[in-house]
Amino acid sequence: MAAAVSGIGYKRAAAWAFSAPAILCQFFFGWFPVLFAFYVGFQRYYFVKQPEFVGLRNLQSVAADPLTVTVFQNTIYYSILSIGLTFIVPIFVSILLMEMSRKTIRWMMLLWFIPVASTAGIAIWKYLYNPQLGLLNGILKGIGLPALKWLDDPALAMLCLVLPGLILFGPGLIYIAALQNVPEELYEAAELEGAGFLRKVRTVTLPRLRPVIAMMLIFSIIGSMQVFELPFIMTGGGPGYATTTVVMYIYNLAFLSYDLGKATALAIVLFFVIMTIIVLQRKFFREDLDT
């Protein structure tokens, strides 16, 4: 007993020693830059000059900038498209996948998760979309339909960014993991009540998945509202400003116009927009399991 008591202090010391590197990293690269954004956003801040406190002037300049509205519209449009069209797809594919035999599941998953590097994947799609050399227009011509301008068409460009997620449907690892924890008795009980396939999905599977879906929805909202790479590489924000997202504009302001203060002020606005959406989402989409 005495040994155990004297061991407590030692255990605590080890606890802090083990956590220390992570605490430092999380402080410097996780929390601190976020907090510091609230300082930079209220300064006139250029690389070449000493920063100067300007109060709300950066926010005013963001509000007065006509592009602000455009990029927020684009970003929200992208979010709605990508979540509306592609969010539920992996959920249902995962549910359906569970119906297959174990061997088939294994094979399908192996083939499904063969990875392509992400920038490589974007390059492939840009090639498929190419109006002259791309396969998609080749197919359209082949079946006698008029060719489309795809990424060069302002009305179509945003949809083109989302389309791969819809065409290439696949399961989600998280959902597969969660589905394995659904107790079989629940299905048996539903079966006894004469429930068909769809009704079992609706009354048993989806409610069980609710916490995971709620969490993934939050991550999808956060992720899609901050989309950068995809439009940056695929369209460069064009044609015109048709696919310029908020984060791309933040990047442009900071690293092309060197207006760090305004860039960060815009980031702060984005921060509050996203946090508002998350709070609303959590209010309407309970995470708890109702059983």
Partner: peptide
């Protein structure tokens, strides 16, 4: 930090890494 949009920190992170650990200009 998982629940916080991380892109808000693009600029501060760059400043911090430019002359670590000083995020100032």
């Amino acid at each position: 930090t998982l629940m916080i949009p991380g892109q808000i920190a693009i600029v501060p992170r760059f400043l911090l890494l430019s002359h670590f650990p000083w995020p100032t200009r």
